[in-house]
């Protein structure tokens, strides 16, 4: 049924309101980033000063969380062996969206000092999308904090789109994961 009155086109306005809501959401999201720390490597030693009175990440609204469901940032601190990568991917897929990945140190970038190990992966970017890298072996705490502020900027500029990329290129990521790991879900871990 066609109305004789002027009606604005609904599709555009809906996209518009969605965008508005998304920007409001982004404001809340960047000011309250909760971390899930995946502390396998040596870079984890930089986190206590970042949290306590020296640098105090709580003033940016950040803080540690207990489970992936509650967290926004997956913080990968250091190298990832094949065994731990599996768990990282599982954990990443459990996080609620939007979700971001911050990688500390040179190991997730190019393998770092483990670049020639048969058990350690070299580029984390091949398996899960990374939003912010903090380079250095290990990066000092200012650099870590700077990385978090960078992530906030990215959220503001709508360029922290790793989670969308993971959706869009899921096949590609999955293929890489399987190529390195064989199977992502281990089926006999507790011999059930």
């Amino acid at each position: 049924m066609k109305s004789t009155k002027f009606t604005p086109e609904r599709n555009i306005s809906k996209a518009e309101t969605d965008r508005k809501w998304w920007e409001i959401g982004d404001f809340f999201r960047r000011n309250s980033l909760w971390l899930l720390m995946y502390c396998t490597g040596c870079c984890a030693i930089e986190l206590p000063p970042a949290m306590t009175s020296a640098y105090d990440m709580e003033r940016l609204g950040m803080g540690p969380m207990a489970t992936p469901r509650q967290a926004d940032i997956l913080l990968v601190s250091g190298y990832l062996s094949l065994k731990t990568l599996r768990r990282l991917i599982y954990t990443y897929e459990q996080m609620s969206e939007p979700r971001y990945v911050v990688a500390l140190g040179s190991c997730p970038i190019n393998g770092g000092i483990y670049h020639d190990s048969h058990a350690v992966i070299n580029q984390l970017d091949q398996y899960v999308p990374v939003d912010v890298y903090v380079a250095g072996c290990m990066p000092n705490t200012e650099a870590v904090m700077n990385g978090f502020v960078d992530l906030m900027e990215q959220i503001k500029n709508k360029s922290a789109n790793g989670w969308k990329k993971y959706h869009d290129n899921y096949e590609w990521y999955r293929q890489n994961q399987i190529q390195s790991l064989g199977e992502v879900d281990v089926h006999d871990e507790f011999h059930d």
Binding site: G25, F28, N31, S32, S53, D56, E58, R59, G61
Partner: peptide, 17 residues
């Protein structure tokens, strides 16, 4: 704890996020 601490409205930000 000799920190700056969050903004006073931080809890609202957390909830709305």
């Amino acid at each position: 704890q000799k920190r700056v601490g969050p903004r006073w409205y931080q809890e609202f930000l957390d909830i709305f996020k």
